[in-house]
Simulated scan of single mutants.
Amino acid sequence: MRESLLVGAGAVIGALARWGLSLGVGAIPAIATVPYAEIWPLLLINFLGSALMGYFKPGPFWGKGVLGGFTSFSAFTAATVTMTAAGALAHVFFTVAGCIACYILADALRQRGGQHV
Rank of each mutant, 00 (worst) to 15 (best):
A37G: 06
E38S: 14
W40V: 14
W40C: 02
P41H: 11
P41W: 11
L43Q: 04
L43K: 02
L44A: 15
L44T: 11
L44P: 00
L44I: 14
L44Y: 02
L44V: 11
I45T: 08
I45Q: 08
I45E: 09
N46W: 01
N46Y: 03
N46S: 05
F47D: 05
G49R: 04
G49S: 03
S50F: 00
S50E: 00
S50D: 00
A51R: 01
A51E: 01
A51M: 05
A51C: 02
L52K: 03
M53V: 11
M53R: 04
M53A: 14
M53I: 08
M53N: 02
G54T: 04
G54P: 00
Y55P: 00
Y55V: 00
Y55Q: 01
Y55S: 01
F56M: 02
F56P: 00
P58G: 07
P58M: 06
G59Y: 00
G59R: 05
P60V: 08
P60H: 08
P60Y: 08
F61E: 01
F61R: 03
F61W: 12
W62I: 10
G63Y: 03
G63E: 03
G63F: 05
K64D: 02
K64N: 10
K64V: 14
G65F: 02
G65C: 02
G65M: 01
G65P: 05
V66M: 12
G68Y: 09
G68N: 08
G68E: 04
G69P: 11
G69C: 07
G69N: 12
F70W: 13
F70S: 13
T71W: 08
T71L: 02
S72K: 05
S72W: 09
F73K: 10
F73S: 05
F73P: 07
F73I: 13
S74N: 13
A75F: 06
T77D: 11
A78S: 14
A78N: 15
A79K: 12
T80P: 05
V81W: 05
T82P: 03
T82L: 15
M83R: 10
T84M: 03
T84N: 08
A85C: 00
A85Y: 04
A86H: 10
A86I: 04
G87D: 05
G87H: 11
L89S: 15
L89F: 15
L89G: 15
L89C: 14
L89W: 15
A90Q: 09
A90G: 14
V92H: 08
F94I: 15
T95I: 07
V96D: 12
V96N: 12
A97C: 11
A97T: 14
A97P: 01
G98Q: 12
G98D: 10
G98I: 14
C99D: 13
C99W: 10
I100A: 12
A101M: 09
A101H: 06
C102I: 09
C102L: 13
C102S: 15
Y103R: 04
I104P: 00
I104H: 06
I104Y: 10
I104C: 06
L105F: 13
L105R: 03
A106L: 01
A106M: 06
A106I: 02
D107K: 09
D107I: 00
A108M: 10
A108L: 09
A108S: 11
L109N: 03
R110G: 01
